[in-house]
Design a protein around this nucleic acid. Sequence first.
RNA 1: GACCCCAUCGUCUAGUCUGGCCUAGGACACCAGCCUUUCACGCUGGCGACACGGGUUCAAAUCCCGUUGGGGUCGCCA
Length: 493
Amino acid sequence: MTDVRVRIAPSPTGFLHIGTAKTALFNWLFARKYNGTFILRLEDTDVERSAEEYAQAMCEGFHWLGIEWDEGPEFGGVPEKGACGPYRQSQRRELHRREAFRLLEEGKAYKCFCTKEELEEMREQARQQKLPPRYNGTWRNATPEQVATMGDTPYAIRFKVPEGETVIHDLVQGEVRTNNREYDDFVILKPNGDPIFHLAVVVDDGTMKISHVIRGDDHLTNAARHVMLFQALGYELPKFAHLPMVLDEAGKKFSKRLHGANVLDWRDDGYLPEALINYVVLLGWTPEEEGRELFTRDELVEHFSVERLGASPAKFDLKKLQWLNGQHIRRLSTEQLRDRVVPLLEKAGFDTRAKSEAWLTKMTEICQTKIPTLNDIVPYTDFFFVEPAAYEEKAVSKQWKKPGALDRMRTIRALLEGVAPWDHDTLKAAYEQLSETSGEGLGQFVHPTRLACTGKSVGPGLFELLELLGKDVCLERVDKAIQFIETVEEKTP
RNA sequence: GACCCCAUCGUCUAGUCUGGCCUAGGACACCAGCCUUUCACGCUGGCGACACGGGUUCAAAUCCCGUUGGGGUCGCCA
């Protein structure tokens, strides 16, 4: 295979969309798999909608996912890299213009002096006749004299679509042939000298020596236009692969307005980038190894193959992402997980620096198989940092608003006081013995203790949690609980 | 409207190119059970699909045609 050079070419009109991330991911995977080059090119020629902050937000999205480009624009203090720059389309305007005029000189394009109003009328007429709205070719065969009489009236340059058939050998969609009659002579350069998308992509892909154009299948019908331009410009034709788009859970195109459309939403929701990547890849590709779904970034690179890309669109399934996220959380070493989770606790306002690293590791360990997302660490461990502000209502009525609740709590208090050393095994043994001598289930003692110490009915395993909380704090909280029950009993005799 | 793409359990999919090995396999979800101090994790089992209609063939999820449904493109947006 020739040098693999692929690119993602988003237009920075917002954040990094999940769909853009998906095509970027496949481009990146392809490049990594075949030792190729992955290029980021910002298509910021639409000045109206592009903004610098959007470009930065987009790059941040890629950065979070761990999709690093080999060639691309400046970002976050890292200067532009690559020999085919600049990588911002807006800075390549001269090149686009030059190529447009070259086509003009070679007779492959022509000047069109139609005004916007005339074009609008043309479309209106077509609509009325129920014909596809398209340019009628007014200036296609204009004589040099006619053109000359226009003087310096502003004009657009249109590409002269050749007769014949254009065939695309798509790596995903197969052979797609279209009669060129389906296409009208489209504008390639605006009167103000700005290139139109079709010209810009082709010139950029051609001059950047892109070997494979891997993009969303919303470009499939554009591909024929691009192939014609590639041929007219005399560039080497890249291979094409049009991937299906990502649909939302209802099966509609994933709207920008939906939560989760922005890849950084997932970061904020406590998902691991490797889990998101793993999930999104599965939306468009199946591994050779049947039944396997869990992959790290490196494993994806290792196993990726174009042959197994799917052609049908996939709906986004949150449940499966959640499951995968849990799998990735459990795959992390406890230390890695700790380092990801501690900042979240800090953000929640808890002082983790007062705890030792070993303690924090232990805390992470007892939550690792429990939390579905990183953010869940907060409700699972908040009681380690602050005293429970309130007791869970439902648990209170279940554990403490029944006869004997107070005595039971006092029994627990006495039990805890005698536990030494204060560790998981000893605590467990003590509770088991209590359960046995009293003839009651272990849960009868475990649940009230949990409620007293954490304020909740769910959380990490009780004995490991107690060990970490420390004896003094536990006794204190049990005392508080006893007081609480006493007040409750007074109120409801 | 014209043209293009897509179509297997609720969801993601294997199988389709190279028809028989498919009374259609896996995963998520769901349901039941096990484990268990809660919630989870883990384990076991269950439910559950070839969109429809025609062909071709000894044989079709697999090939062909049509229908339906979904998506896309038809800009002096990208």
